[in-house]
Design a protein around this nucleic acid. Structure first.
Length: 224
DNA sequence: GCTGCGATTGACT
DNA sequence: GTCAATCGCAGCT
């Protein structure tokens, strides 16, 4: 079958695997970087998926998720990282697919310049925040349409250009880093990746709770 | 208005 | 293997 935007409107867990192999291209004055998607995660809508930002309803941040499919939802996390999602549900459903990792297929040098800490080409877009960094995607791109081949950001779904993904290499499993109320969200097998691809991110189970980073000023601290 | 913490990464032991 | 960085959002007072 041929991937098309019309086929990418539906339940995120059904849409997510269809995005594997698609190529997201970002064009800037510096040049273009293209990333072939190798790993994704599905996030459901209001009241359905505790791991989703939209679980508790519409907020200013999640506004884009509630809009029409085919747009990019970009959010800021950990005070320094951007993560990119493709909105896939019909308006109001707030479903999206997180782009977790990919392979740089165009503009390797530009991507490497944006990711100076990457040691290998395979690390240029391995991980959700690395993928956005390599592409040069930030919050400025939140809400942008991805279905315009002439736009700054374009998600190419045409298998005659991106290559056909063999379904027997598509794997699924628990999502990464998700620990919603009750922890149930992490158990949804809504993570999809291309088996054996070196750009797929390392699986780490969601940490229950990291030790408080900030050590409170010790009460018994001695003064000089 | 205040506070806790996160769909992460890179540096360090 | 452990842990800090860093800030906007969401929930609560």
């Amino acid at each position: 079958m041929t991937r098309a935007w019309s086929a990418l409107t539906g339940h995120p867990a059904a849409v997510a695997p269809l995005l594997l192999g698609a190529v997201l291209t970002h064009r800037t004055a510096d040049g273009a970087v293209g990333v072939r998607i190798t790993e994704v995660e599905a996030y459901g809508g209001v009241g359905e998926d505790p791991g989703s930002h939209a679980f508790r309803g519409r907020t200013p941040r999640t506004e884009v998720m509630f809009g029409p499919p085919g747009r990019l939802y970009v959010y800021f996390t950990y005070g320094m990282h951007w993560c990119a999602n493709v909105v896939c549900g019909p308006p109001g459903s707030a479903s999206a697919v997180l782009l977790r990792a990919g392979e740089v297929v165009e503009g390797r040098d530009l991507a490497a310049a944006r990711r100076p800490t990457a040691r290998r080409d395979g690390d240029l877009a391995r991980g959700p925040a690395r993928l956005t960094a390599g592409l040069g995607v930030t919050g400025d791109h939140n809400g942008i349409h991805l279905d315009d081949p002439t736009g700054d950001l374009w998600l190419d779904l045409d298998e005659s250009r991106t290559g056909v993904v063999r379904q027997d290499v598509v794997r699924s499993g628990p999502r990464v880093g998700v620990s919603g109320p009750g922890g149930d969200a992490a158990t949804f097998p809504w993570r999809f990746w291309l088996d054996g691809d070196p750009t797929v991110s390392v699986y780490r189970a969601a940490a229950p709770r990291r030790r408080t980073a900030r050590t409170a000023p010790s009460r018994g601290q001695s003064l000089p």
